[in-house]
């Protein structure tokens, strides 16, 4: 009688780790020893349990998952990713996830590597030096922002001049404020070859999203719409591609500011405080 797979996979943390490890690629005993930090005598009974359950086979000196093992791995991976995400930090459950579309929420485990970066209370109203420095050598940069952060303008312009691809999505109030204070710089930015500027409606459900080849950061509002200056960040390739997809989602709902006429119409209408509704698609 075979024991149930749920027990085979989840009754022991060692076996769970082993399954997730072999799901990446076949491994030798030597590699398993090092990567899981175990002795062969401690891990061999677990390997035997897997081979007895037809989840693992030994081939060319390596242990690898069978087809069945691979299916079991895929299902375990996506559950373990979400469990890791929620057990690591309460950030996600204490904030409003309404700005993340369902298909990305289904894969929120992809950003399980995120770490919380707490704001330093003494510097809350200062430019965020860490973020600025971190993103300053990016090969590409994508930003969705509900905030007016003029201190980042030099970063956008610098990367733009360095031929990095820079795409910015601002809410209409943020763009309005930028145009009010930095009209020339914004006009110049919008007309550069390798830069894109988009505008979307106010009331975004995410506070800020920054993605580059170096990493990603995201910050959200709490359920009451409050913002605490903390953010989550991660450098995993998986998290970066998740964040890029989130950026693409917002881009698909935003209007591209591609010629100066749009800026003209924006600056003229926004003086009376009303921006042409027809120009904007709903961002929700």
């Amino acid at each position: 009688m075979q024991s149930e797979l749920i027990d085979v996979v989840f009754r022991s943390q060692k076996r769970r780790d082993l399954l997730l490890l072999l799901g990446e690629e076949p491994r030798t005993m030597e590699e398993i020893k090092v990567l899981l930090d175990v002795s062969p005598t401690a891990i061999l009974p677990h390997i035997k349990r897997f081979t007895d359950s037809n989840l693992v086979i030994q081939k060319n000196g390596k242990y690898e998952l069978t087809d069945m093992g691979n299916q079991v791995f895929k299902k375990a991976r996506s559950l373990v990713d979400v469990l890791t995400l929620v057990e690591k930090d309460n950030y996600w459950i204490e904030h409003d996830l309404g700005g993340i579309p369902q298909y990305l929420l289904d894969r929120i485990g992809d950003i399980k590597g995120c770490n919380l970066v707490k704001a330093d209370p003494s510097q809350i109203f200062e430019p965020s030096i860490e973020l600025f420095n971190f993103f300053s050598s990016s090969r590409y940069l994508m930003v969705v922002s509900s905030f007016y952060r003029p201190e980042f303008l030099p970063l956008y312009s610098k990367l733009g001049r360095l031929d990095s691809e820079v795409s910015l999505i601002f809410t209409e109030s943020v763009l309005d404020k930028f145009l009010h204070n930095y009209e020339r710089k914004i006009r110049k930015f919008a007309t550069m070859e390798n830069t894109d500027l988009f505008v979307c409606k106010d009331g975004l459900k995410i506070a800020e999203l920054i993605v580059s080849d170096r990493g990603m950061m995201i910050s959200l509002f709490d359920s009451q719409g409050r913002f605490y200056h903390d953010y989550m960040s991660c450098y995993d390739p998986q998290a970066i591609s998740w964040a890029r997809e989130l950026f693409d989602f917002y881009k698909s709902k935003a209007l591209k500011v591609e010629d100066e006429n749009i800026i003209d119409s924006f600056t003229s209408t926004s003086k009376d405080g009303a921006f042409s509704e027809s120009l904007l698609l709903s961002c929700h």
Partner: peptide, 18 residues
């Protein structure tokens, strides 16, 4: 709501195999 949708495909797959 984040966790339970991941349990279902796992449990149904395990059940078919078991």
């Amino acid at each position: 709501k984040l966790i339970v949708p991941k349990m279902e495909p796992l449990l149904s797959t395990f059940r078919v195999f078991d």
